[in-house]
Design a protein around this nucleic acid. Structure first.
Lengths: 367, 367
DNA sequence: ATGAAAGCGCTAACAT
DNA sequence: ATGTTAGCGCTTTCAT
């Protein structure tokens, strides 16, 4: 092969950025490609002398095996992909952290694809990822409206294994979620235990599964206590931001002036609600208790510090990747996956001063 | 090739998940692989009749070209990688959003690699990415201590093109940054213009380039005004969190009880500082003005709303990818890149009520 | 307009 | 202990 020597000679010219190949190394070391391959893959059947000689050539040429070629042969890319929305929000970004950690742990590289809106078309993203032969996909776009109806239309078994995040469990698909309904229930039960009876809610955008679940949790907790989930206790939001916390709080105080607690569907909403409560002179928590959802780092420093619901989103990401890995292994060995492939985690109540008066430092009182 | 027909027959068995190949399609359509290739790549020299027949076979087999094989031939993977820290923080995550958008725009897929700490070892990550033949790398790990000394040790020209984020510009490397020093100056000048004269600072972790730049900006702005940057006006932090806002504010009020303004090096720090100011009964901004840095979405809803510095971090990400693309193209065509490959963006001051009394809604006052 | 053959960089199977 | 051959799935000459 005449190309060989010429390439080898070029390698150290600064204008040549073609990476060295197995052939280059083999020629420089005066052995066959298979021998080099043995060294690279740490196989034992090789004499120490040649191993050293080959290693020297590898170092000299700064040789790196081409994973693309390897993947072709092995029919394995060792890559996963996550398709996500909103990584500039706390929750989604935490989930990605968990996904990346576990993927790395299991030896996968991770492709990241983002959509601007949960309802954006994702066909092209999917096409590209399939063409790249990713071995599995984590679907981290929140379920909004019917943006997952394609699961039925498009036959999932023509895709690589997929794990869905944050949705209702369904037969035949793998889902990893936080139990949002339970989280909301915990929040409202906590308020009930404190003796509150007029408990309002500022919802998230109700087309979102998470928002509607939290709403349902609020309703169920009130029902348990024999209280009515009257419409005058509800303020709806178009998104999760603090703006709707402000609007929602104003609306609630107008609709139900005697309200004594509010469950805000996100910490950001809670922040907006707190601001309005202060402006309108309602003391928190004495006259009005407020609970949020997310446990963002800032929430502990709100004024007063916010009682909220902690979601184990890093865990969700990690479990999603483990699940995906299991599905991949199962499909490869043509066996059925062994275990239950959907997981639902119960979030945890974090009690702070926005609901529990005792938690307020003395100097924190206003009066 | 005898393997062909057997594979084709298997394709629709549910246990067979081997993707269809060009060969499979060619055999089904009764043409050569080259002809299929022409259809897939939308080349013109083909009769409409065969094109349709081939397309039918493609659809039937759900064929997707294998990008791995293509990449091998073209010596191009069409992938970029970002190595990042802290995507669960607002700033870094915004940058990633910009990177992903622009990468997608330019036709690259994006690998995401995360490190837990800025000083973590990254050798292995780099090795993997090079083996995957990524065409370029965005270095989004903040500069902390000497965690970038490897740039000199390791010869950068043995790597794919790299763009560094958030550091001092240096000859021979491409950097995209926000001018943190200028941002801090804008914040402090704003306070000076409001007539404040005892302006303290709560720094970030000073081993970080961004933190030390903001600190330097504070010093320079004071110097411009002929004021002394006395140590009693400085409180140092170990990280960017609100805890240090609390500690720092306490320390400052003790060291300099007559302080009339504080520049907090992050919005989170500012949040902690605000809390302590309230606890200790200092009215913000009347007695004590506070300015933050980042313009997180929450900062507009702090109490009072926070004056802060807006960083165009999505833009930083986008520019980084554009720069990288330019470097890749230049290297491929063996020409020198045409333009200046480092960029420094000036952040913007966002004025809210924590510094400017007029900005406070009347009902917002406490007295 | 279509096809045959070579080869991208690597590994697996089978020599020697 | 080491080398030879074939081929992963695709594209690229170069034929026809």
């Amino acid at each position: 092969m005449s190309s060989v020597s010429s390439r080898t000679q070029l390698v150290h010219k600064s204008t040549n950025h073609l990476p060295a190949t197995l052939r280059d190394v083999a020629d420089l070391a005066g052995v066959s490609t298979k021998t080099v391959s043995r060294v690279v893959n740490h196989q034992k059947e090789i004499s120490e002398a040649t191993r050293l000689r080959v290693q020297a050539a590898i170092d000299q040429l700064d040789y790196r095996p081409n994973i693309l070629a390897r993947s072709l042969i092995h029919q394995r890319s060792n890559t996963l992909a996550v398709i996500a929305w909103g990584i500039d929000y706390y929750g989604p970004s935490r989930t990605i952290v968990g996904i990346e950690q576990e993927a790395n742990e299991l030896g996968y590289s991770l492709f990241l694809s983002l959509v601007s809106h949960p309802t954006d078309n994702h066909e092209q993203i999917l096409d590209t990822l399939i063409s790249r032969r990713v071995e599995g996909i984590i679907w981290a776009i929140p379920e909004v409206g019917d943006n997952r109806k394609w699961i039925r239309t498009n036959h999932l078994d023509q895709l690589p294994p997929v794990v869905f995040l944050t949705m209702e469990s369904r037969r035949g698909i793998s889902v990893v979620s936080i139990d949002n309904r339970n989280g909301a229930k915990q929040a409202v039960r906590h308020l009930l235990q404190l003796g509150r009876r007029k408990i309002g809610i500022i919802t998230g955008p109700l087309a979102w599964w998470e928002a509607s679940e939290r709403f349902a949790g609020w309703q169920e907790a009130l029902a348990e206590a024999g209280l009515e989930a009257s419409p005058s206790l509800v303020a709806k939001s178009d998104d999760w931001s603090s703006v709707y916390g402000e609007c929602g709080m104003r609306a609630l105080l107008e609709q139900s002036p005697d309200i004594d607690a509010v469950f805000a569907s996100s910490d950001q909403i809670a922040l907006g609600a707190l601001g309005i409560a202060h402006q309108l002179g309602r003391r928190v928590p004495q006259e009005l208790a407020i609970v949020g959802f997310d446990n963002t780092p800032e929430s502990a420093f709100f004024w007063p510090p916010l009682t909220t619901i902690y979601q184990q989103l890093v865990d969700v990401g990690g479990i999603a990747v483990k699940t995906l890995h299991e599905m991949i292994s199962a499909r490869r060995s043509e066996r059925e996956p062994l275990q239950q492939l959907s997981t639902m985690l119960k979030p945890e109540l974090v009690i702070r001063a926005s609901s529990l008066e005792q938690n307020i430092a003395p100097s924190f009182h206003l009066e």
